[in-house]
Design a protein around this nucleic acid. Sequence first.
DNA 1: AGCTTATCTGAATATATGTTCATATATTCA
DNA 2: TGAATATATGAACATATATTCAGATAAGCT
Lengths: 124, 124
Amino acid sequence: MSSAKTKCLDGDACQVRVIHLDRVERARRETVSEKELNWLSSIYKVLGDPSRLKIVMALRNVEMCVCDLAAFLGLTESAISHQLRRFKDLALVKSRREGQVIYYSLDDEHVAELLNIGLAHVTE
Amino acid sequence: MSSAKTKCLDGDACQVRVIHLDRVERARRETVSEKELNWLSSIYKVLGDPSRLKIVMALRNVEMCVCDLAAFLGLTESAISHQLRRFKDLALVKSRREGQVIYYSLDDEHVAELLNIGLAHVTE
DNA sequence: AGCTTATCTGAATATATGTTCATATATTCA
DNA sequence: TGAATATATGAACATATATTCAGATAAGCT
């Protein structure tokens, strides 16, 4: 309803088509910063892989070491280690050394929430 | 504590190292099916891209058409259309035709929840 | 019917990503 | 100290993916 005709947007060459300028401007006003957007998407992304999802799902209940996870997933210990590093880089998983063994566990309440909602989605 | 020594797991050649057999078996008992795991990870994955995340964030508030979103994101309308199809394939976004214009909006309560938790994470 | 607008589709491409292999580091035990 | 165990790291490769371009549909307007 806002604008019946196609309009232009403030741009370099003004070649962008817009139908609802008000909605675009509202979206621009209400959007989070580019930085937050990238961070947030990287959190979803790290959960968006079957292997990694299986890892955090397991860590939801017990802390586990690399070779346990490797046995559980049926993957190389190296592969697990690589993936665990991605989680640690995002501060979603923490580690605890006990002799030669390093135990991994969840380090973020939000992640657990995200997983719970996902599970609710899957199990209807 | 469960087992001090490295053990083998029931496998083809029994070459898998395991430290905590009980934890691995528990994880196997409590894991969701491979099918559900793939589906769930594909939902996280589709949110795990800055452009797509920006799209659904915008759709959280208003329904928008392709060219609005293209103007908002600064991307080609084709690119937006491609991404919207991914959302539709997962039934996370629905569309409504009104003449030539097709309006897109969220079609899944769980996704909105996932986004809210993500935002809570970002905004502390 | 033609013309314009809005969206979709498929091919192409450059880039990102998951896993493996070989090797390095760190800790324990003899 | 040296051997064995647990994990980490870097290179390499095969696959996946996001975007663009060119062309195809589909609806409204004259």
